[in-house]
């Protein structure tokens, strides 16, 4: 099963880890037109494997935490860039939610 999962991955994603600051450009269809959306924040965790892998990006907008879960291999992710490498000691940075 793992071999098949790997063969389904046609997309190359940049190497990123929890703690990294990333910028993601997604495209989606709204009615007829295709719109693009940018999301910038810190990766607080990756979970799953193969085509089922997802990662969570967190940012704070106007004092309110916003989290977005992306499927890693989703074709809606048009572009992804790592702005800054993080230095963390945990795989899941859920403690960021409690920090003010």
């Amino acid at each position: 099963m793992g071999i098949i999962d790997n063969s389904l991955q046609e997309k190359k994603m940049p190497d990123f880890k929890p703690g990294d600051r990333v910028r993601i450009l997604t495209k989606f269809k709204e009615g007829e037109e295709i719109r693009k959306h940018r999301f910038e924040g810190i990766v607080i965790g990756r979970r799953g494997q193969g085509t089922g892998e997802t990662f969570t990006v967190r940012k704070v907008t106007a004092g309110c935490g916003v989290e977005h879960i992306f499927p890693t291999l989703s074709p809606t992710i048009e572009k992804m860039e790592v702005l800054k490498k993080g230095k963390v000691k945990r795989a899941k940075l859920y403690y960021l939610r409690k920090q003010k």
Partner: peptide, 14 residues
Amino acid sequence: KIGMTRIFDESGET
């Protein structure tokens, strides 16, 4: 039967 997984279509639907 090998197992289950997921694939994406062009619009990003799983």
